[in-house]
Amino acid sequence: MRRTLSLWPLALLLALASAPIAIMYLFLLVDTVTNAPPGSAIPNALTLAHWRFLVDPRVTGDVWRPTVTTLLFTASIVAIVLVVSSTGGYALSRLNVPFRRFLLAGVLVMHAFPLVTLIIGVFLVLQFVGLYNTLTGVILVKAALMLPFGIWIMKGFYDTVPWEIEMAGVQDGASRFTVWRRLVLPQVKPGLFALALFAAIDAWGEYMLPRILAPSSDFQVLSTYLNAVSDPDSTTYNFNLFKSVGLFYMLPILALYAIFRERLTNIFGGGTKG
């Protein structure tokens, strides 16, 4: 009883501190289905008009094309990050690669670099190979920037798999590749899963790279689409509409978090269960 009582002040403090955020999110939700009189924040009418953009392309332009593009963008990045991290992490954890220490240090340094410091170099490279202003180019850059984190995380997971398991597999006659695929990979599955989630969430929310590296192209991802909607100079500017599109954009991520909350914490716990 004393325990629960003594938790009250703490709970109150936390509630107060998070109140602005909670209220903000509450209004984000409420405003998408209501109208409020000018000058007031309290809604006075229920409406679904703000969601018309889902079916009527005249409101802000077709929303489904950017959605599909974003899905494709996210899926490609997740695929690249998973394939490269699961193999690269293994190599760094197990194989006697030349310059192993140098590579490990390099991976960490890359991880530490803020995106903006690299953007000019990245721009030049993309321009040079002709991928500037293309979806492929943005996907490659985004995936590449996420790889240091992915490789590092996967290396950590591989490190916890006992060396003897691989040796036992080799003794049992399996090739190194079979050993990796059938014996080692199943044991780092929690790591792969968490990494896939992180990559998906990160890619889904990416705004800077498509904006900078493909400013005039014919494709849009949801983040740049949302940016277009929020332009106050636009004729279709409507703050409630902007909130509706924003909520629409958030929903998949919220769903991912809700469903896989426990798996996400795995990435920091790490390792296989005994």
Binding site: E164, I165, M167, A168, Q171, G173, S175, Q187
Partner: peptide
């Protein structure tokens, strides 16, 4: 010869069973 071609059975100290 590589391990795969030697036909040797090994029991490791920690057994090295495949947990999955």
């Amino acid at each position: 010869l590589p391990s795969q071609k030697r036909n040797v059975g090994v029991v490791f100290q920690n057994y090295a069973l495949y947990p999955h």
